[in-house]
Each structure stands twice: as C-alpha cells, then as structure tokens.
C-alpha cells in the first residue's frame, strides 16, 4: 500500500512517533510518501486570524497531493487532522473561497481542482494491522486517549463524545483495554506551551482518571496529546503512567523491538510495564 503522508510540525521531534510509524509501516509494506516541501498546517489558531490564509495554508497541501497523484492525504496528528478537514469542509461549501484559494495557489505555481480526503494514520493501521495471534500483551491494560479534536466536530471516525474505535483496535492487536471517561477531554493542546500552569491541571485530570480506572499505560494518537500527558508527569508524584503512541503498541504487537519504536524516548519510562512477565 502507498499512502501520501503529511507529518506536520511536531511529528519528527516527538518521542518516537516517527520511529514507530516508519518501523510499523515498513513491516506492513506501507509506503509512506511524504509531501515534499510541506508547510505548517496553520494549526487551530490560523482560522481566527484570517480565513483565506488559513485555508490556503492547508490547501497548498491539497494541491501538492494532486500533483503527487494521490486521492487521500494521511496525517498522524489530531490538530493537523482537524485543521485540514476544516479547510476541506470550508472549501467544499464556499465556492467563492475555493476560487480565491485557487488563485493564490495558482500564483504559487500550484493547481487545485479537487479536495483530497483527509484521513488519520489510525484509520490506515486499523485496516492494515493483522489480528493478534499472541498472548504476550494480554495482561497489559491500556487506557486509550483520543484527545478532543479527533472525533469532533465531524464525528466521521467515531462517535464524538465516547468513541470506541481505539479500544477495538487495541483489543484486536492483542492488548487489554480499560474503559475510562477521559477519552475526549482536552489536554490543553498547544496552549500547554503558553499557559503551562493552567494546562497542567487538564492533563493531570486525564492521567488521574485513566489511572483510577486501572490502566498501566496510556496510548495516544497525536504528538501534542502525547507530549502534554507525558511531560505533565515529570513534575508531580501522582501515579506515573507511560504515555505511548498507538504506533508503538502496534510495533510491539508486530514483534518489533522497543528501541526500534523509540520507546526509550518517553519521559515516563515504559520499561517496567513492558518487560513485566
């Protein structure tokens, strides 16, 4: 399988997302075609600034996807996912905005005729991962954390408030899952950088809930979520739960070595829970 991949600004520098994604895709024969010369998607802030600029930042990739000959665009970041989808939706509904965006892109030497489907890496792996045949991780209980931007507002992937696809996915690839109520609570997202103190509380709330419900490890589908939840735990002594990427767990399920998956980069070490008999 070949996919057109948009990494987004935080992918490469995150704690093992890049390593694990690449390792898993290699193992599953998924060819990751990175969009050449990609730019920041504008994240959530840009729409408040200027609609045309915000859509253009996103739409530049839509044009590049078209040049590459792909129908879909895949990203592993919830903020990118939400932002690109929002731009796609606006362009689809607003003829005038679409034409203006086309003009701007045209001046950059790019043509945009059709809007690709924006997909999350989770969808790709849900289709590609084989069912588990081993009991190795059956006793490792995972709390799945979706973040607030994956299923809302458009609820395409799953229900908006209490999604369950990640649980189904984890169970299918051989992990035990713990139900909990923090799955779509906000972790603070990019505000964690500027309003650190305010956002710490948000992250702690999520970690506490997942720990309360008995999970040993958290898994996330977004670099911002992972970073916020992981680093929030460096400053307090509440229960410490390693915060992994779903791709890292997928890698383990495929029999890849922890180091190959960048698991050593987590702030709260996962060594103990993963090496338990």
């Amino acid at each position: 399988m070949k996919i057109c991949f948009y990494p987004g600004c935080s992918f490469a520098t995150s704690a093992g997302y890049k390593e694990s994604t690449e390792a898993v895709c290699r193992k599953l024969n998924i060819e990751l075609n990175e969009i050449p010369d990609w730019n920041c998607c504008g994240a959530t802030v840009m729409f408040g600034e200027n609609k045309l600029r915000a859509t253009t930042l996103a739409a530049r990739h839509f044009a590049l996807v078209q040049t590459m000959g792909f129908e879909d665009l895949v990203t592993g970041c919830n903020a990118c996912y939400a932002t690109l989808r929002k731009a796609a939706r606006l362009l689809d509904r607003d003829r005038e905005l679409f034409q203006k965006t086309q003009e701007v892109l045209h001046n950059l030497g790019l043509e945009l005729d059709r809007i690709p489907k924006v997909r999350h890496l989770l969808e790709v792996l849900m289709e590609a991962m084989p069912d588990s045949t081993s009991d190795k991780y059956k006793t490792l209980s995972v709390g799945a954390y979706y973040g607030c931007q994956l299923t809302r507002p458009d609820q395409e992937l799953d229900k908006g408030w209490y999604p369950e696809i990640l649980e189904h996915f984890l169970a299918r690839i051989g992990f035990s899952v713990k139900e909990h109520s923090a799955r779509t609570q906000c972790c603070g997202a990019s505000h964690a950088v500027i309003y650190k103190n305010e956002c710490q509380g948000l992250s702690h709330r999520i970690i506490r809930e997942i720990a309360n419900k008995g999970a040993q490890v958290i898994t996330t589908v977004c670099p911002l979520c992972q970073f916020n939840l992981d680093q929030a735990q460096t400053q307090n002594n509440e229960p410490r739960l390693p915060v992994t990427y779903f791709t890292q767990l997928a890698g383990l399920a495929l029999g890849l070595a922890p180091a190959e998956l960048g698991l050593n980069k987590l702030l709260v070490s996962a060594d103990k829970v993963l090496t338990r008999p």
Binding site: W161, S181, A182, Q185, R205, R208, E209, N212
Partner: peptide, 8 residues
C-alpha cells in the same frame, strides 16, 4: 455539558 464519573 457532560455527566462524568471522573473524580475531581
């Protein structure tokens, strides 16, 4: 907005 069993 929400009813939750998350403990504050």
């Amino acid at each position: 907005a929400e009813i939750t069993d998350m403990v504050e």
